[in-house]
Amino acid sequence: MAPDAPVLYERHGPLAHVTMNRPEYRNAQNSAMTYALDAAFYRAADDDGVKVIVLAGTGAHFSAGHDIGTPQRDAHLPFERRAGLWWDHSDKRGAEQRYARESEVYLGMCRRWRELPKPVLASVQGACVAGGLMLAWVCDLIVASEDAFFADPVVRMGIPGVEFFAHPWVMPPRVAKEFLFTGDRMSARRAHEVGMVSRVVPRGELAAATRELAECIARMPRMGLALTKRAVNQAEDLQGLHAGLDSVFGLHHLAHAHNAETTADPLAGLDARAMKDA
Rank of each mutant, 00 (worst) to 15 (best):
G132S: 13
E102F: 09
G69D: 10
V54K: 03
G126F: 09
G94S: 00
V120C: 15
C128V: 05
V105P: 00
D91H: 09
A130E: 05
V105L: 14
R81W: 07
D140Y: 05
A56P: 01
A64H: 13
Q97A: 13
V129I: 15
R93A: 09
V124M: 13
W87F: 08
A122N: 12
A56L: 04
W113I: 14
G131C: 09
K51L: 07
G57Q: 08
G57P: 06
R73D: 03
A136V: 01
V143W: 10
S63C: 10
E80H: 15
H66K: 04
R112A: 08
D74M: 04
A100E: 06
L141Y: 14
I142V: 15
A127M: 15
R112M: 09
D88N: 15
E115F: 05
D140S: 05
R111N: 09
R101W: 10
L116P: 00
A75Q: 12
W86R: 15
V105E: 04
W137Y: 14
I142L: 05
M109S: 02
R81C: 14
C139V: 02
W87S: 13
A122T: 11
D67R: 09
M109V: 00
Y99N: 04
D47Q: 08
I53A: 01
V54S: 04
S63G: 14
